[in-house]
Nucleic acid binder design. Structure first.
Lengths: 159, 159
DNA sequence: GGTGAAACTTCTAATAA
DNA sequence: TTATTAGAAGTTTCACC
């Protein structure tokens, strides 16, 4: 997949939308000294190109009662069971991210749970999947960094 | 922080907005058989309560030339250096997430890079931080699961 | 490529129920 | 709490640069 060429105006538009998806195009236009129509056309172009894949809300999971985050490394008995295990993991909604990895673990996932007890249930469920030989859990005490915007700024200055 | 009580209508509103932040309130209203004004009031209430913290774009990082994802576990020489090391990590924009963890590692982070060489540079930079004794890298071969919506559905049915 | 204006859609706040 | 309403604001298209 090749890089896509975005100019400075595109960067600025993305930057404002990353901050708040509902920023009115008229506001963006005013700030960038272009017309709202241009903002619209450029956003559409980036959507069509697949650069912008969508938008999503950032919710406060703690306020929703889900304050527990852990990472779970999974060791498989045999590598070819990866697909099967991933299908099973996909049925556990508390697993929000999973990667097939090289290195220590075969699969690596992130879970979000209500509390320690709930997390234990989830981890036991993972352990119980056929093909999983064992797991190793890292409990998050604090999410100290969570910032896509810094990366985007850097990417923009890079291209 | 206590749980917040959301009713079925709130869930449906969130569900549609999680899917696409720019879904017009009039569309949501039509689907839920309520008025757009009500949607507006409820969203505002959830924003004020801090349940909705914001909104963000989902970008295609691969198309932007950043197709490399890795997780890096960090071992510190001494636990009390955590704060210092996190400050240093925070200066590396390619680190998108970092957690203080219990378990194997002291700090655990996620990096997004252009390619293997770029990732190596980032990891060396982490290794060079004072207080870091060593790191362990897990390279993502494939991001197989990345789904907040399933969790939200479950949370909604839970509350 | 971009603009500006028209036509259309959506938002928002006040009022009323 | 919710609905209605109406004016303000935002979006989108298009003829023309």
């Amino acid at each position: 997949m090749a890089k896509f060429k975005l100019d400075e105006v595109d960067h600025q538009i993305l930057d404002m939308l990353i901050e708040n998806t509902r920023t009115p195009f008229t506001d963006i236009a005013k700030k960038l000294l272009i017309s709202a129509g241009t903002v619209h056309v450029r956003v559409k172009k980036m959507e069509d190109a697949g650069i912008i894949r969508g938008s999503s809300l950032t919710l406060d999971y703690v306020k929703l009662g889900y304050s527990f985050i852990a990472y779970v490394g999974i060791f498989l008995e045999k590598t070819h069971q990866t697909k099967f295990v991933l299908e099973r993991l996909n049925q556990i909604p508390y697993i929000t991210v999973a990667h097939i990895t090289t290195g220590k673990f075969n699969i690596f996932c992130k879970i979000r749970a209500k509390d320690t007890k709930h997390a234990k249930d989830i981890i036991f469920k993972i352990d119980d999947i056929d093909g999983v030989s064992r797991t190793e859990t890292m409990i998050s005490l604090e999410e100290s960094i969570n910032d896509k915007r810094r990366l985007m700024h850097t990417i923009f200055n890079d291209l």
